[in-house]
Design a protein around this nucleic acid. Structure first.
Lengths: 139, 139
DNA sequence: TCAAGATTGTTTGTACGCAAACGGATTTTG
DNA sequence: CAAAATCCGTTTGCGTACAAACAATCTTGA
């Protein structure tokens, strides 16, 4: 008989979440190729907020200071972020989306919705709502 | 009024899964410090299987060939994996857990169970079962 | 049988993701 | 007001993760 101590990797929540994330990233990559999911998240938040410091954008997108720096660097290289020193705080780098950022964001929002929809497609609508509700409790 | 096209990052399944995974990795790191979650997954599978080629271990743990190579290299450096060429297939590297691997695995299984339990702790037992069931459908 | 195709392990390059440390700027507090 | 604490952006180092390419080795099919 199975002991309480049995450990089946494939039944562990961490392993299942990693695999579900892998599938989601595959869906994302097949529909949006110019930006990574992380870059799109930062772009979306930046367009949502409008003007924000680098670290604050990181907090808003759940990326630490080291991670958001690399993401912002790559978005700037793509021409999606312009920055200027904050006149009221000399430590801060004030980020703003460029016109090109808005164009790309607007063009990609539909695909982004589709990606979320495709990710949840194996579930019924009711299950999707339950899943998202439970997922929110695990943050 | 909100348009159908509104995109709220914080409501997207990908973003929520990333944050839930972050929380889980934090819980893991606070209870198991000698091994990363990925390394523990590979170790657990290796102990479960017993003897397996490197790429096959990667498939069993949802890691591609490049990723599993690095993980195996680090586990070997820690003394948890011994390898030998497969006599029946000269391409294959046959991996086996060392005695030290078994000792460490046995010693850590309890913590691993606790990590899964802590990760799901915000949910009731019924919710946990539902969440895992839905998560499995999203793989 | 033997050429075509697949698989094994490897390397390189890019991109998160986090810990830790750092100097400089700002805020808090004693 | 000055010291302590905090926050800002940066760098380094390590560990996933995956794409793409590669040589060596099997396997298959005509």
């Amino acid at each position: 008989m199975a002991s309480d101590k049995d450990y089946v990797l494939d039944d562990q929540v961490g392993f299942l979440m990693r695999r579900a994330t892998q599938r989601h990233l595959g869906i994302f990559g097949s529909q949006i190729t110019d930006l990574t999911p992380t870059q799109f998240a930062a772009l979306a938040k930046l367009c949502e907020i409008g003007e924000v410091s680098q670290n604050a954008l990181g907090r808003a997108t759940a990326m630490d200071a080291a991670t958001i720096k690399g993401v912002v660097d790559r978005l700037r290289k793509k021409g999606f972020i312009s920055d200027a020193p904050d006149p009221t705080d000399q430590r801060r780098l004030l980020l703003k989306p460029t016109a090109s950022a808005w164009e790309n964001y607007d063009a990609l929002v539909g695909a982004a919705h589709q990606i979320s929809s495709d990710t949840l497609d194996p579930l019924t609508e009711g299950e999707q709502a339950i899943f998202l509700m439970l997922l929110r409790k695990l943050i």
